[in-house]
């Protein structure tokens, strides 16, 4: 279990983290969400000792994270970077050795991961000779090459094509299934909703929501009601009382309602108005939860260049 406890960090006058606390469990894919500048990258950097928090600490499996422990972690920073003129295979092996693998094991591991990503024949090529997508794959391989216990990836999906996204998803799921802790940040909320079991949402340096996506949805007092009534004039919704119309197009209407809404009564009312073509009552999407969680003032946090 990765525990982030009460992390605080300031850069001059800019507050990057303001008492962030959350946990992430092994074996589950954890999406780390938040607007730009909310503190995602700073949190990850604190885990890897790349930033020193003003307050608070990070723990892994109950122990404060230190340098020897970090060798068993894998990291993919937001700003991708490897040695442009170093050969791909040697580069992977080099980083594997920094994580404590012997020279021989590092070579084997490098070859295995290159093979996994279909880059076995590019082992002797310089990184800069590879396509952008393949460079991304090598970057991921660097994070994975030493079979880490914990993977922390900053925006691993950004810039990936659908095939790359599928590969990334597959690898992350496989690692989680193997008992590895996997935490990654992303702005692609639909993707996170599909891929992750848990989310942690951060805004202005504080954690505003965390937990399994299903639970968060269930806990939300709101539901989305989507109804399509042919022949109706749409006036029937006025009798529903306290609802918010999100979208109304032709016969179709999308409403934000309370989870206590009397469904049978609503269905009956719609039926009286015309022929029901569609009637769906669902928890809000992750993107709705996200917007709700960060609130109005969390949306325009200034970008911190660090």
């Amino acid at each position: 279990m990765l525990e982030v406890h009460d992390l605080a960090k300031r850069y001059g006058n800019v507050v990057a983290l303001d008492g962030a606390t959350f946990t992430a469990h092994e074996g589950r894919l954890v999406g780390f969400l938040g607007p730009n500048g909310a503190g995602k990258t700073t949190t990850m950097r604190c885990v890897f000792g790349l930033a020193t928090p003003d307050r608070g600490e990070t723990r892994w499996r109950g122990n404060p994270i230190d340098q020897p422990m970090r060798l068993r972690f894998g990291y993919m920073p937001e700003q991708r970077g490897l040695y442009p003129r170093m050969k791909v295979g040697e580069q992977l092996s080099y980083f594997a050795q920094h994580h404590g693998l012997s020279g021989r094991d590092a070579k084997t591991a490098a070859a295995r991961w290159l093979d996994r990503f279909g880059l076995a024949d590019r082992s002797g090529a310089k990184l800069e000779e590879l396509s952008h997508g393949n460079q991304q794959r090598v970057q991921l391989a660097v994070a994975l090459v030493h079979d880490p216990e914990l993977l922390v990836l900053d925006e691993p999906f950004s810039g990936l094509d659908p095939i790359g996204t599928a590969t990334m998803t597959e690898v992350l799921r496989e690692r989680a299934a193997a008992g590895v802790g996997v935490v990654f940040s992303s702005h692609q909320l639909d993707l996170v909703e599909n891929v992750c079991e848990d989310v942690v949402i951060i805004a202005k340096g504080r954690i505003v929501a965390q937990g399994p996506i299903d639970e968060l949805k269930r806990a939300s007092g709101r539901r989305h009601l989507e109804v399509e009534v042919a022949g109706g004039n749409g006036a029937w919704i006025n009798s529903l009382g306290d609802v918010q119309v999100l979208e109304q197009r032709g016969d179709r209407v999308r409403l934000l309602v309370a989870d206590t809404l009397d469904l049978p009564a609503t269905l009956a009312q719609a039926g009286r108005a015309g022929t029901i073509r569609r009637f769906s009552f669902e928890p809000p999407a992750l993107s709705d939860l996200f917007m709700e969680a960060i609130g109005e003032d969390g949306r325009d946090t200034p970008e911190v260049h660090r």
């Binding site: 790349l50 970090r70 970077g81 442009p84």
Partner: peptide, 12 residues
């Protein structure tokens, strides 16, 4: 090239 961030995740 930003590689320093990857390196410093393990090296002081």
């Amino acid at each position: 090239s930003r590689v320093v961030e990857v390196v410093l995740a393990t090296v002081r």
